[in-house]
């Protein structure tokens, strides 16, 4: 399995566990009452699961298993792959900070805006980089 796929899949597993733990914490009534920002963590939980876990597994496995681009350059630009990895993960982490921050302090939108930009770049970067590998024989 290529290095980049291993990073995507292992990071995905970390998000899988993290999102489950967060999902449990969200169900504990005393936690919701103690921390003022907890309502903002529901979308964080959902996106850690759907992007952090499921999407990263798909990205990692497709980078590994989809048809080769060419004999000389089977997986396309590895640099683009690492860029997608960075954008998705930095975007998720800034979102995990930005959502509760803007919930408590509405005048602090910067992490959320950075997150939006990074996640968008990661998504578009993945679609663009894998597009040429979605092809017949």
């Amino acid at each position: 399995m290529p290095t980049l796929s291993r990073w995507f899949i292992k990071t995905g597993l970390v998000y899988f566990v993290t999102s489950f733990v967060l999902g449990i914490v969200l169900k504990i009534p005393s936690a919701s009452e103690s921390w003022i920002f907890m309502p903002a963590m529901t979308p964080v939980y959902f996106h850690l699961f759907m992007i952090g876990w499921i999407t990263q597994i798909i990205v990692g496995v497709s980078w590994w298993m989809f048809p080769a681009m060419s004999r000389e350059n089977p997986r396309g630009s590895e640099r683009a792959g690492w860029f997608v990895y960075f954008c998705i993960n930095a975007g998720l982490l800034t979102r995990a900070i930005g959502e509760p921050l803007v919930y408590v302090y509405p005048d602090e939108p910067i992490p959320l805006l950075v997150s939006a930009g990074l996640l968008w770049l990661g998504g578009i970067g993945y679609a663009a980089s894998i597009w040429k590998r979605v092809k017949g024989k």
């Binding site: 979102r95 930005g98 939006a116 996640l119 998504g123 578009i124």
Partner: peptide, 17 residues
């Protein structure tokens, strides 16, 4: 995927600004 991420980014920006 690209369309969904684009709309998601707009929604996230809207939460901040």
């Amino acid at each position: 995927f690209a369309s969904g991420f684009t709309v998601g980014a707009l929604l996230l920006i809207h939460k901040g600004v």
